[in-house]
Design a protein around this nucleic acid. Structure first.
Ligand SMILES: NC(=O)c1ccc[n+]([C@@H]2O[C@H](COP(=O)([O-])OP(=O)(O)OC[C@H]3O[C@@H](n4cnc5c(N)ncnc54)[C@H](O)[C@@H]3O)[C@@H](O)[C@H]2O)c1
Ligand SMILES: NC(=O)c1ccc[n+]([C@@H]2O[C@H](COP(=O)([O-])OP(=O)(O)OC[C@H]3O[C@@H](n4cnc5c(N)ncnc54)[C@H](O)[C@@H]3O)[C@@H](O)[C@H]2O)c1
Lengths: 232, 232
DNA sequence: GTGCCTTTGTGAACCCACGCACAAAGTCGG
DNA sequence: CCGACTTTGTGCGTGGGTTCACAAAGGCAC
C-alpha cells in the first residue's frame, strides 16, 4: 500500500519553481567550489538573481531544509535539489539532426556534468552518417527506434530543419519517449503526457528588438506615426 | 507637442503577449506562403498552438485589425505585427565568442530572414581571429567597442565561456548596447534599462528530467523513499 | 539558562494572465 | 434590404505567482 505524507513535501511543485531550481543549483555549485559551508536565502537569492522571499518559498516546496538564524547547508541543499530534479540518476539523451546546431550541442561539455549523457547522434544525410563527433559515431535515422530502445534514451533533442521536426517527433514518441527538447521553429503536435520544451533563438531576438525599438522611440507615441483612418 | 492617443493602441503590451507575437508571425508567414488571404482566430490559434481567446486578446492589444465574420487579413496582420516588433527595420547583431555555439549561430540563416543582420563576430583567441565564417571575418575582442560603434550594433549575443561573460557584458553596455542575448550559464548583473534574455539549454534539460522522473515514479510518493527523521 | 540576534517559513494582499462566454459587428445569400 | 450566420473584441471570474512583512525558531554569547 502506498502511504501519502500529507502535511510536508506534498508534491505538486509549481512550474515556476521547477524552472528556477536549476538556477539555484548552479549558484550553489559555485558556492560549494569556493568551500562555503552555509548560505542565507539573501545571499543565495543574490547569486541566482531572484528575490529572497521567492527563493525561500521555492525551497519550502521541497521541504524545510533551512536552519533559522543560520541559513541553508550548501552541500545538503545541492543534494536535495538534485534529487528533486532527478539529477541523481543519469539520463540518456539522443540528438536528432547533426548539423550546425546538433554538432555544437554534441561537443558541449555542460550537459554531461549535469548527469545528461549523449547516447546517440542521428541524421538522415548519408554524408553525415559515420562522422565521429565527441566520441560518438553518427547513425542513420533509420536506426532511430532501435537506438532509443537499445540505449534507454528517455530525452530526445530535435535539431533538424523545421520541415522534418514533426515527423521525427512522431517517431520518437512512438518509441516511447515522452520528453523532447525542440530547436526547430515549429509548434510540435504531441499527445497528452508528452513534454515538449522549445528553444527558439529567433523569438528571443524578436523580443529584444521589440524592447529596443520602444527604447529608441523614447516613450510616448508620436501621433503621426500612424495617422487616423489609414488602412494599409 | 506630443499627442497621446488614449483609447486605441495604448502601449504597454503585456510581456506575455510580446513573447507570443513572433509565434503568430511565424504561423502567418506559413499561411502567406500558401497564399491564404484571411484567417480566423480559431485557425491561427491552432497553427500557433495557443487558445483562440488568448490570441484575440493578444491581437487586440495592437489594435482592432480583424473583421468580424471574416477573420484577419494575413498580409496586413503580418505587417502590423512586424511593425510592432520592430522588424520593419533591420538590426545589426554582433556575436561575441566564436566557438561551437557562436559558429552555429553565425551559420544559421534563420536570423537574417527576420531582419537580423550579423554585423560582427568577435573572439579573444588569436587562433580564431581571422577565420572567415558565413562571409564575415572574426575580429579580436580588442575591437569590440569600435565594431559596435562603427557598425551600429544594437543587439549583442554572448557565446563565450561563463567566466568571460560578465566582463564582455560590462564592455558592451559601456559601449551603449542595451539588448543582450546570453548563452553563458551565469546570471549577468546589468544596470536598469538594459534587457538581458538568456538561453540555457542545460536548464531546459533539467526541467524535462524533473517531469520525466515524476512520470517514472508513477504518481504518489512511496513513503519509504524518504523515511521520517532521516537527515543526510 | 537566559536573552538577544539572525534568518527562516508562511499568511495575506496584490497583480497579472488565462479562458469562458457573450454581445456587438460585420458578411453574405436571397 | 433583411435575416441568418460567422467571428471578433472584451468583461469577468478564477487561479497562479510574486512580494511584503512578521511571528516563530534556532544559534550563540555570556
Ligand atoms: N544553427 C542555429 O544557430 C539555429 C538557431 C535557431 C534555430 N535553429 C534551428 O535548429 C535546427 C537545426 O539548425 P542547423 O543550423 O543545425 O541546421 P542544419 O541544416 O545545419 O542541420 C540540420 C541537420 O538535420 C539533418 N536532417 C534533415 N532531415 C532530417 C531527418 N528527417 N532526420 C534526421 N536528421 C535530419 C540534416 O541532414 C542536417 O544535418 C533548424 O530547425 C533551425 O531552424 C538553428
Ligand atoms: N555549445 C553548446 O551547445 C552550448 C550549450 C549550452 C550552453 N552553452 C554555453 O555557451 C557558451 C559557449 O559555448 P561553446 O560550446 O561555443 O564554447 P567554446 O569554448 O567552443 O567557445 C567559446 C569561445 O569564446 C571565446 N572567448 C573566450 N573568452 C572570450 C572573451 N573574453 N571574449 C571573447 N571571446 C572569448 C573562446 O576563444 C571560444 O572561441 C558557453 O558559456 C557555454 O556554457 C553552449
Amino acid at each position: 500500500m502506498i502511504r501519502r505524507i500529507p502535511q510536508a513535501r506534498d508534491r505538486g511543485i509549481p512550474d515556476a519553481t521547477v524552472a528556477r531550481l536549476p538556477l539555484y543549483l548552479r549558484a550553489l555549485n559555485g558556492l560549494a567550489e569556493r568551500g562555503t559551508p552555509t548560505v542565507s536565502s539573501e545571499d543565495l537569492a543574490l547569486a541566482a538573481g531572484v528575490n529572497s522571499a521567492k527563493l525561500r518559498k521555492d525551497l519550502s516546496h521541497l521541504g524545510s531544509y533551512g536552519t533559522r538564524g543560520v541559513g541553508y547547508d550548501v552541500q545538503y541543499l545541492i543534494y536535495q535539489i538534485s534529487r528533486e530534479l532527478g539529477l541523481t540518476q543519469d539520463w540518456a539523451v539522443a540528438i536528432v539532426g547533426v548539423g550546425n546546431l546538433g554538432r555544437a550541442l554534441a561537443n558541449y561539455g555542460g550537459f554531461v556534468s549535469r548527469g545528461f549523457r549523449i547516447a546517440g547522434l542521428l541524421d538522415a544525410d548519408p554524408r553525415v552518417v559515420g562522422d565521429r563527433i565527441a566520441g560518438l559515431v553518427v547513425e542513420h535515422t533509420d536506426e532511430l527506434e532501435a537506438v532509443i530502445k537499445k540505449r534507454g534514451v528517455s530525452i530526445v533533442v530535435i535539431a533538424t530543419p523545421a520541415t522534418a521536426a514533426q515527423q521525427v517527433c512522431d517517431r520518437v514518441i512512438a518509441s516511447g519517449v515522452t520528453s523532447i527538447l525542440n530547436f526547430a521553429p515549429v509548434v510540435l503536435a504531441v499527445p497528452d503526457g508528452v513534454d515538449v520544451r522549445k528553444v527558439d533563438l529567433s523569438i528571443e531576438l524578436q523580443i529584444l528588438a521589440f524592447h529596443e525599438q520602444r527604447k529608441a522611440n523614447g516613450g510616448p507615441i508620436m501621433a503621426e506615426e500612424w495617422p487616423d483612418g489609414v488602412v494599409m
